[in-house]
């Protein structure tokens, strides 16, 4: 899967959780939860959706590698087959 495809998928999943926040308006290197104003439940739902979409376990221990939009894209690029 290409980086562009992963970015699109991530953008779609984020849109489901935070439809009022546009990717154009956020700092892609800023704290993901702050930028999208999402709480623990939202983040867990995001992780669950991405895990399902990319068939990844998305362990909690890896959460620090998912702290901003760019990190999360990089993580998914690295982990997905």
């Amino acid at each position: 899967m290409t980086q562009a495809e992963i970015e699109t998928a991530l953008t779609n999943e984020l849109y489901k959780i935070a439809p009022d926040v546009s990717l154009d308006d956020i700092d892609r290197a800023g704290d993901l939860r702050e930028e999208f104003d999402i709480d623990s439940m939202d983040f867990l739902n995001l992780v669950a959706a991405l895990g399902k979409r990319f068939n990844l376990p998305m362990p909690e221990a890896d959460y620090p590698q998912m702290s901003c939009f760019d990190d999360l894209v990089r993580y998914l690029v690295d982990k997905s087959p």
Partner: peptide
């Protein structure tokens, strides 16, 4: 929670809430 969730898929993880 950390121990419990380590073995769980995201959909069955527990939050402090």
């Amino acid at each position: 929670l950390t121990k419990l969730n380590a073995e769980r898929a995201p959909t069955t993880r527990l939050l402090m809430g």
